[in-house]
Write a protein that binds this DNA or RNA. Structure first.
Lengths: 240, 240
DNA sequence: TGTACATCAGTGAACGCGCGTTCACTGATGTAC
DNA sequence: TGTACATCAGTGAACGCGCGTTCACTGATGTAC
């Protein structure tokens, strides 16, 4: 094998594709982004998202892609941005029904891990690889900035934590933003280690997240808040 | 730029290198592994560890490397194995002075994160990328198996946790191996998210680990064990 | 209603690159006699 | 002590590959007149 890239099945002819009609060229853009995500999922890294692989999936020649993206970097960035947007929506939707801050936080954490494990390719590119930061002077104006997105996401969590503190559910030790960052790190750990080490005999992930919250709940929460959050408290621990 | 690989500074002539003497050929093997690690550190992924880049660093032509490694995969695997061995030693050494199980655990966690952040390239390859598992039938006999290494490392942590339970320091809820796995996930999260997202404004990592243990200590430990572990307990929280 | 034409979607060939790997080789050096 | 030779470290050229990107182009189609 001359290179480490994915096999690509060059024998398989691309799906027959009809040329788009006059004003509909923009639809190729979406198809290209879809293909980029497919490659992220199937392969393990952003390196597999190549112009040529995408063009083969879409059923078009490589130069056609440059009609919609300046270069490979812009394409990958756009794909990340779209994936991130869906990720955000998924989590916000999961937390939408939460009636109090603690359930909000737990719902977000569970949704986070679920999305990551359901979309390992995208999660890997978004959170586990060194960003495709162009950072090329002024190019970064309109381009996707993961750090900005992370901060935005953390602010949601921060709001929930601040709310919990305000309601007397959580001990007010230190800035809530730092606690949010710590929670993010932990949840990311649970998700990313499973994605990176799929062969390890992991326990059920829902149980792991539950265990984490059981421990965290006792550590973070006030006595009054615990029974709200912890699913099945061990009676011997609480009564004795 | 035609490819996404590292620039490589082709103008720089390799360091003048004297040919090794007759029985000393094995020294090149070590130099090659050193160079592989250098590339892991400088670049961000295992993809940058190329035969040609290594041969340039070492000051030898590419075919010489095949004298010591069957192919690129074997080389990367050997480099991982060596790095993993140093990682293990570093952590065991950090925990060597611990006099009780809880300090053992905390020392291991701190050492884990420190090593990861001091050796981000190696940590990335070992824990954040889908393994270079050859898994080619019987080739896996003598080759490096990350899963086996992970389990071995966790068993150290498991022993410490079991010891803590035996001494009445930790509530015996569930198998300690699962708790060890959870702790590993969390610590990995703290380390890996910082490696993957270096541009994010992270708080001081020692503080983060301290915060985590403060929360975990309250959640996991028995009342009797807390003051042993928690560095600066907030008196209002404990006394009131 | 018919036609010329600008626009637009997409093509095909080519470029130079770095890659892993193979092959036949060269020349120094330790060792057996 | 001298010499022939097997061994060993390392070379140089070449292979075929997939990659990102460029260039000049083709042919369908909507639209202005």
């Amino acid at each position: 094998m001359p290179t480490t890239a994915a096999p690509l099945d060059t024998d398989v002819k691309p799906a027959a594709r009809v040329r788009l009609r006059r004003g509909e060229g923009d639809r190729l853009r979406e198809e290209v982004l879809d293909a980029a995500e497919t490659l992220m999922v199937d392969s393990s890294s952003a390196d597999a998202v190549s112009i040529r692989a995408i063009s083969q999936i879409v059923g078009v020649t490589a130069p056609s892609i440059y009609r919609h993206f300046a270069d490979r970097n812009a394409l990958v960035l756009a794909a990340c941005e779209r994936a991130y947007s869906r990720f955000d929506q998924y989590i916000d939707k999961a937390a939408a029904d939460a009636t109090d801050p603690l359930h909000d936080i737990k719902s977000r954490a569970l949704a986070y891990v679920r999305w990551a494990l359901d979309n390992p390719g995208q999660y890997r590119v978004l959170f586990m690889l060194p960003g495709t930061h162009s950072h090329d002077e002024e190019t970064a104006n309109d381009s996707f900035d993961p750090v900005k997105s992370h901060i935005q996401g953390l602010q949601q969590l921060d709001r929930a934590l601040a709310g919990a503190v305000a309601q007397g559910l959580i001990h007010p030790s230190g800035p809530t933003m730092e606690l949010a960052t710590l929670l993010w790190s932990m949840v990311h750990g649970i998700a990313s280690i499973r994605i990176a080490q799929p062969d390890f005999p992991w326990p059920d992930v829902e149980k792991t997240v539950g265990d984490m919250f059981q421990i965290l709940a006792i550590g973070m929460c006030t006595e009054a808040a615990r029974e709200r959050l912890v699913a099945k408290p061990t009676k011997s621990r609480r009564k004795k």
